[in-house]
Amino acid sequence: MLQIPCPYCGCRDESDFSFGGESHVSRPLPDSSDAEWSDYLFNRENPKGIHYERWLHSYGCGRWFNLARDTVTHQIHAAYKMGEPKPDLADVGND
């Protein structure tokens, strides 16, 4: 069971939350090529290491936020609000 630190409510059990996939995926401009559009729609980083991802506190405040979580150890390095930039995790030594 993950203990997820919601930036609005504090730490709650994983079962309170829904997962929203990779964060910081930006929609291409209207004149983008088919290749760019397909990359945006389907391709994901899916890293073995730190993943920047969206979560929804479904059974809590009902708000979206971001986590920086390691996909191997499940350690959560940072929780930050939507619209905020990726935190600098250079000292963790993995990106």
């Binding site: 069971m1 993950l2 079962s15 997962f19 073995k48 993943h51 191997v72 499940h74």
Partner: peptide
């Protein structure tokens, strides 16, 4: 499990 994972172990929920 609902989230990306490379850990070869499943979550309790």
């Amino acid at each position: 499990d609902i989230y990306n994972s490379y850990a070869q172990r499943g979550g309790i929920p």
